[in-house]
Write a protein that binds this DNA or RNA. Structure first.
Length: 457
DNA sequence: TCTGGGGTCCTAGGACCC
DNA sequence: TCTGGGGTCCTAGGACCC
């Protein structure tokens, strides 16, 4: 059996831990630049705020309904996530951290009543971390995911499902008839793996509930749709097709991109931003022990500003050799930027992507042909005896850079991100024109000494 | 004025190989 | 009349997830 544990309205719940006055009120958390809603309390959902709802379109709720909107505080959410994951992990032999607020637990071989254990886990996470969770249990990950949805819906809209399926919902512990009733009452679009497109296609073919989907023949689904949806159907039927992955492989690509707080027109500002993003991407790269073979740079105007001239460009810059060196990567990125930048446009967003990633301990050795050139006055035959040193010399240079990078990471780890950075990433004053807008950010209560909460007697 | 930032997997089609 | 039969690798694009 598998369980999916996830924090309810996670970002909002994190904020409520430190501002209990927000409990019971409509609250949303906004994306970067305070652009749109990315988390909503149940009260905010009830008001009709959608996921991804642009803030400027729902601002009126602030005045009319007391909606509280906060800027995203990812330092806080990341830290709260870790705390929640640690508690959850103590309940099962294996855990897959699936996203910032969700983890799968694999209970294979664990004796005892899972519902009782999961209720205990839920209570402990609530008490120790302060985050309310929903737990779904099922014989496959897809069913656990569905169970989790049902547990939430039972809480949020009483009467949708039997009350016993609230908070902790175990789809493997109810009768076949009950299970089918649950399937029949659930829209096919709620299934993990069925998105907007596939959902519409299914409905067109008369498959509108989970029950309709479960009753399809899996191999027919493969022919009409894809192997992906076939797996989904089999998982709903109770056959495990998707494993719990508790040792995720290193990422195959690393992206850092941001929309700007204000439109950017100067190449110089774009260069500052690209340098900063590259630097951040390189930190992530080193964090997973990889080196990049190429860097992709992109810039674009805002597709929402239809009256402005539009421009969007991407360039891939191959690197001479794979590297995780921030400075080398930034130099290449800027070279790429020079190739695609055009003056006269209002840029809204830029980003970099590190690709062709490989492990640093698997790196190809190489001969440095420059060092192998026979210097004048030397006998080639004689010098060949020392040709191995060219390689050694080159590699020791690389090791020096690697040490520099780990020193940089250590300083930033201890004194905070950005304490030590590339000159090209600019000072605060250089970023004024385009830095991200975060007008409603709460303190970093758990990760910054200066922001720690004070209890008054 | 104002619209996020990441990722993964699969498939189809083209280039190229023998 | 009639023009093989496999393969692999790469890329772009689509679909999904949070």
């Amino acid at each position: 059996m598998f369980a999916l544990v996830d924090g309810n309205n996670f970002y909002v719940s994190c904020e409520r831990v430190f501002r209990p006055s927000l409990v019971g009120r409509p609250v949303i958390v906004l994306s970067n630049n305070d652009g749109c809603a990315i988390a909503r309390s149940n009260e905010a959902k009830a008001l009709g705020v959608r996921m991804g709802h642009p803030w400027f379109q729902c601002k009126d709720f602030e005045r009319d309904h007391g909606l509280v909107a906060l800027s995203a505080n990812f330092a806080l959410y990341g830290d709260m996530s870790e705390r929640m994951m640690v508690v959850a992990s103590s309940y099962a032999p294996r855990q897959e951290i699936y996203s910032i607020d969700e983890s799968f637990l694999d209970f294979t071989g664990v004796p005892g009543d899972l519902v009782v254990m999961c209720r205990d886990m839920r209570a402990r996470i609530l008490q120790w971390v302060g985050i309310p969770c929903g737990v779904g249990i099922g014989p496959t990950k897809t069913l656990a995911k569905l169970a989790n949805y049902i547990s939430k819906t039972t809480e949020r809209k009483p009467g949708s499902y039997p009350q016993k399926l609230g908070q902790v919902c175990h789809l493997g512990a109810i009768s076949q008839d009950e299970l089918h009733a649950v399937f029949a009452a659930t829209d096919v679009g709620e299934v993990w793996g069925v998105g907007k497109r596939i959902g519409a296609q299914l409905r067109e073919g008369g498959v509108s509930t989970v029950l309709d989907l479960v009753r399809l023949d899996a191999s027919t689904v493969r022919r009409h749709f894809s192997v992906v949806l076939e797996k989904t159907v089999r998982e709903l039927q109770g056959t495990q097709c998707i494993e719990v992955d508790d040792q995720p492989a290193p990422k195959q690509q690393i992206m850092v991109s941001r929309s700007f707080g204000h439109a950017v027109t100067k190449g110089r500002d774009l260069a500052t931003a690209i340098t900063e993003y590259t630097s951040r991407a390189a930190e992530k790269l080193r964090g997973q022990g990889s080196a990049a073979g190429a860097i992709v740079v992109f810039i674009r105007t805002s597709p929402f500003r239809k009256d402005d001239p539009q421009y969007s460009a991407t360039v891939t810059v191959p690197l001479l050799r794979p590297t995780a060196d921030s400075a080398l990567l930034a130099t290449s990125a800027i070279a790429g930027l020079r190739g695609i930048y055009k003056a006269g446009f209002k840029y809204a967003k830029a980003g970099v992507m590190l690709v062709d990633l490989q492990s640093t301990d698997m790196q190809q050795g190489e001969l440095d042909f420059d060092a192998l050139e026979t210097p004048p006055g030397h006998d080639r035959e004689v010098d060949q005896g020392v040709s191995g040193s060219a390689l050694t010399c080159h590699q020791s240079g690389q090791r020096g850079r690697a040490k520099l990078m780990s020193a940089m990471d250590a300083v930033n780890g201890r004194y905070g991100r950005g304490s030590l950075k590339l000159a090209g990433a600019g000072l605060e004053i250089d970023r004024k024109g385009w830095a991200m807008k975060q007008e409603r950010r709460t303190p970093q209560y758990t990760t910054c000494w200066g922001d720690i909460a004070v209890v008054r007697a």
